[in-house]
Design a binder for these strands. Structure first.
Lengths: 221, 221
DNA sequence: CGAATTCTGTTACGGTTTTGACAGCATACT
DNA sequence: AGTATGCTGTCAAAACCGTAACAGAATTCG
C-alpha cells in the first residue's frame, strides 16, 4: 500500500476524539484561558491524559516540551487537521423532518459546515425557506454541487431512495456522505461514508438500561 | 467487582452490532426466510462470519450446532437481549426542530420505543400535536415519567439546560439518557448516557474527506 | 449404513487501542 | 546557582477486539 499522507494514518478512535478536543478548547478560548495541560483537558473530557498526549502525538509537536499546550495554537492546528480551517460547503438531501431539523441546526454553520443547498423530491416542499435557503428540486442538485464545489453531503432521504441518491452524489463529485438512512450504502473507493443510525444508538442504550435494571433487582434479592 | 449478570459483560463493539443483526433478521423474516447461516447473515452486513458467531457466543446457544440459525428463534432472542421484548416507553425532552423530528420519526415506535410524552419550556409550543402526542409543559414531566414508568429519555434541549433537565430526569427514575446536546452530562452510577453528537460525526467525516482529497492531489503529482 | 457436506460453538492467535511509566525540557523558588 | 516541580513526547506493557482455525453435531446423498 502507498505510504499514507502525513497525519492520515490515524486510528478511528483517535479521529472521533479530535472534535471533542476542539470543542472543549474553543470553550476554553471563549472564556479567556490561554494555557491548558494535558491533565486538565483530559479530565474535563473524562479520558486519561496519556491518551490525549498519545492522540496528539500522531500529528507532532503542538507545544514545546515542558510547557503546557497553548489554546491559541491548538485550536487552529486541530481545525487544520480535521479539515475545517476553511468552511466546508455542504448540501442536505432529503427535506423531511430530520433534514429540516439539521438545516435549522445553527451549529452546522458555526462549526464550519455551511449548508449551500437543500433538496427534496416532494414538490410541496419546494421553495420553502429554511434559514435563508430554499428547498430545491433534485434536478438542480448536481449543478449546485459542482458550482459550489461541495464535497460533503448529508443524506436524510428514505432508505429506499438512499442508494440512488448516493450514486448521483458521487457522480457529481461528493467525497463524503453523512448517511442518516438506515441502510448500507455502496460507494466506490475514494468516497467516505459515515452512518448515523439512530436505532443503533437507542438500542445500545436499551441494552445497558436492561442490564442496570437487572442489576438492581439482584441487589434487592 | 460484583459478578456481572449473565449476558451483560459484553464489549461495546458487540452491543453496537446487535441492532444491525436484529434489523437484518427482521427484514429476512418479512420476506419469509426461515433459516440463515452465519455466513449469509454476516456477508449481508459486511462483516466476518466468525465475528458474528463470536458475538452470539456471548449469549449462548441460539441454535443447535450443525444447523443454521432459525430466524423465528433469533429475532425474539435478540429482542430479549437488547431489552425490547416489551415496548420501552420513552419521553422526548426538548421540542425544538430536532426533538420534533425525532417525535415524527415513525421508526421509534416500530422498533419498540413508543413516545409517551414530549416536553418543552417554550409556551408557544404547548399543545401542538405530533403524531397524536401534545407537547406538554415541563411541569408535567416527572408525573408522567412515574405514571408511565418511563426509563429512557431522549434529550434534545440546548446544552445550557441539559444538565438541569438531566438531574430532574434521573430524580424521576429515568435510567437511560439519549443525549443530543453537545455537552457532557454528569449522572450518578446506575444511569447510562449515550451521547449522540452530530458535530463529531461530521467532523470525523471531514477528516477522512481531507485525507482523500490530499491523496488525490498526490496521485496527480 | 457410511461418507461427505454444512453448519455452529469454542478456543487460540494476531493486531490494535488504551494505559502506565519515564526521560528530558522549561520554569519557579530558595 | 541549584533544586524542586510541572509539563510534554515517547516507548513499553496491558487490555481489548477481530480473525482464523478446528472440533463436534446434524443432515444429505450415495
Amino acid at each position: 500500500m502507498r505510504k499514507k499522507r502525513k497525519g492520515c494514518d490515524v486510528p478511528d478512535a483517535t479521529i472521533h476524539r479530535l472534535p471533542l478536543y476542539l470543542e472543549k478548547l474553543k470553550l476554553l478560548q471563549a472564556i479567556g484561558v490561554e494555557d491548558v495541560s494535558s491533565r486538565q483537558l483530559a479530565e474535563s473530557l473524562d479520558i486519561k491524559a496519556s491518551q490525549l498526549r498519545h492522540d496528539f502525538h500522531y500529528f507532532g509537536g503542538f507545544s514545546r516540551p515542558g510547557r503546557p499546550y497553548q489554546v491559541a495554537k491548538l485550536v487552529p492546528a486541530l481545525e487544520q487537521i480535521i479539515g475545517i480551517a476553511e468552511p466546508v460547503p455542504t448540501v442536505i438531501v432529503g427535506a423531511g423532518h430530520l433534514g429540516q431539523a439539521l438545516a435549522n441546526y445553527q451549529n452546522l454553520d458555526v462549526q464550519g459546515f455551511p449548508v449551500r443547498g437543500i433538496f427534496d423530491v416532494n414538490p410541496k416542499l419546494l421553495g420553502l425557506e429554511i434559514r435563508g435557503q430554499p428547498i430545491r428540486d433534485m434536478d438542480e442538485m448536481e449543478a449546485l454541487i459542482r458550482k459550489e464545489n461541495v464535497k460533503i453531503a448529508i443524506l436524510t432521504v428514505p432508505a429506499s431512495h438512499a442508494q440512488a441518491v448516493t450514486d448521483r452524489l458521487v457522480a457529481a463529485g461528493v467525497v463524503g456522505i453523512f448517511n442518516f438512512a438506515p441502510t448500507d450504502l455502496k460507494v466506490p473507493d475514494g468516497v467516505a461514508v459515515r452512518n448515523e443510525r439512530l436505532a443503533v444508538g437507542i438500542m445500545a442504550l436499551s441494552f445497558k438500561v436492561k442490564c442496570i435494571l437487572q442489576g438492581e433487582d439482584a441487589d434487592l434479592a
